[in-house]
């Protein structure tokens, strides 16, 4: 709008500055209006209330025997719940983390040592690793094995061999530093999300 002033009056008229101010205000109001209008329409693409409502799931842990593993769906992805045996826990804790590609202590990955809860999506290219069902190949470390490109995870679901760069994610964790999104909310009940 400023160029209008240049177009229509290089001579200084007394009403000129008032018109500039008016045009400036009009332009500002128009701009504010447009920006304020855009936001709600963009926001429609953010997760809707029904999607957000389904972002929590409760799992009854009682039926999972020691040594058994369960897969549940959470936020559209599989979550591995492993009721670890004492041997699996010992093996996980005994590892020298400085040798790991993605160093992380086992105690940082669990709230209760007998329950390992991780997102069952390989951090390489997104396949679902094997190891949840009896008879599955669990790989050389007794954890999980991804058949797509051969990534191998240990009993703490940390990456040991193969192309994956990172350990299996804890639910809700985008960076390793942040808290995992699950709580034990009752006798044998865990709430994820």
């Amino acid at each position: 709008m400023a160029d209008v002033a240049q177009q229509n009056g290089s001579e200084a008229h007394p009403g000129e500055t008032r018109r500039d101010f008016l045009l400036l205000t009009a332009g500002a109001i128009g701009g504010v209006g447009i920006v304020a209008t855009i936001w709600p329409f963009v926001d429609t693409l953010n997760p809707a209330r029904d999607t957000l409502a389904l972002s929590t799931t409760e799992v009854d842990l009682a039926p999972i025997q020691i040594g058994q593993r369960l897969t549940v769906a959470w936020r559209g992805q599989p979550v591995f719940i492993a009721h670890r045996t004492p041997e699996e826990i010992k093996a996980a804790e005994a590892v020298d983390i400085s040798q790991l590609r993605d160093p992380q202590k086992d105690s940082d990955r669990v709230r209760k040592p007998e329950w390992l809860i991780v997102v069952g999506v390989c951090t390489h290219l997104g396949c679902i690793p094997l190891g949840q069902k009896t008879g599955d190949d669990r790989g050389p470390f007794g954890g999980w094995f991804c058949p797509c490109h051969g990534s191998v995870y240990d009993t703490s679901a940390r990456i040991r061999q193969g192309p994956a760069p990172l350990n299996l994610w804890l639910p809700g964790q985008v960076e390793q530093a942040s808290q995992a999104l699950y709580k034990f909310t009752g006798e044998n009940v865990v709430t994820i999300g």
């Binding site: 709600p40 926001d43 209330r49």
Partner: peptide, 13 residues
């Protein structure tokens, strides 16, 4: 109805 109730600003659009 989902647009009207659950989608952010769905009722407006």
């Amino acid at each position: 109805e989902r647009i009207m109730r659950d989608v952010n600003y769905g009722w407006l659009v």
